[in-house]
Simulated assay, not measured.
Amino acid sequence: MNGAQSMLAGERYAGTLRILHWLIAVLVLMTWPLGQMIGFVKEDVKLDFYLIHESLGFLVLWLMLVRIGARLTSGAPLVEAPPLEKAAAHAVHGLLYVFLIVMPVSGFLATNAHGFPLKWFGLFTVWSPIGKSPDIAFTLSAIHTWSAWIILALFALHIAAVVFHHVIRRDGTLYRIL
């Protein structure tokens, strides 16, 4: 019997969490490279890249807040693993949650501090809690940039753990989120 066949329904994350996991993953995989490309695009399309990047990032923020609420109310399936492995998994997941909040918040505030309000997908302007604040704009931008790189490193650790469990251990860990 393979990992998928041996899993019980209660050993999977709730459907809402599984959908949010994959939706946020796709959005991050779109938003992250888009943000990296902004510095390399022609000036006549740069603002379009910013608009899409910022709008997707703001969407990630709200979906993460929903995900945290769903996670707190539905819990997580129990997993048997050595204590160190469990601690590492909790640390990586916890840090991913933290930085998937920190990154869009710092990006949103940095944009505002630089004097550019977020016009979400061109539909409406999002209220700015700080307005133009050049004195903190650089710090917020640095937090945003560092958060992006930290998320990339955490993502790499997460994928390495997925490969380890699915290919080497051949357990049902991956099926918990599918």
Rank of each mutant, 00 (worst) to 15 (best):
A9K: 15
S141V: 02
R71E: 07
A14I: 04
H165A: 00
W146I: 15
T31I: 11
V26F: 15
R71M: 05
F108W: 15
G69V: 03
T111C: 09
S106Y: 01
K42I: 07
L78C: 13
F155Q: 04
L27P: 01
F116P: 00
H165Q: 04
Y13D: 04
V167N: 08
L59S: 15
W62Y: 15
E85R: 12
F49L: 08
V162W: 12
I177L: 07
P117I: 03
A148P: 05
A9G: 13
I52M: 12
L96I: 13
P83C: 10
N112K: 02
Y97G: 01
I168F: 05
R176Y: 04
P82C: 04
H53S: 03
Y97W: 10
I168W: 03
H53A: 06
G35K: 00
H90N: 15
W149S: 11
V98F: 12
I150L: 11
G94L: 05
E11T: 05
L27K: 05
L109C: 04
L17C: 14
H21A: 06
R170N: 07
V102T: 07
L20V: 07
V26D: 11
H114E: 11
A161S: 08
V45F: 06
L61W: 02
W32H: 06
T31A: 15
G39Y: 03
M64G: 01
W127C: 12
L27C: 10
L78N: 12
L56R: 01
V26I: 14
H53P: 04
Y50D: 05
L178F: 10
H114R: 09
L34G: 10
S55L: 09
I130L: 13
P104S: 04
M64R: 01
L61A: 04
L47R: 12
T31P: 02
V79K: 13
I150M: 12
A89T: 06
Q36H: 14
G39F: 02
E43Q: 13
A113G: 04
T125N: 09
R67H: 04
S147E: 01
M30S: 14
A4V: 12
P33C: 06
A76S: 15
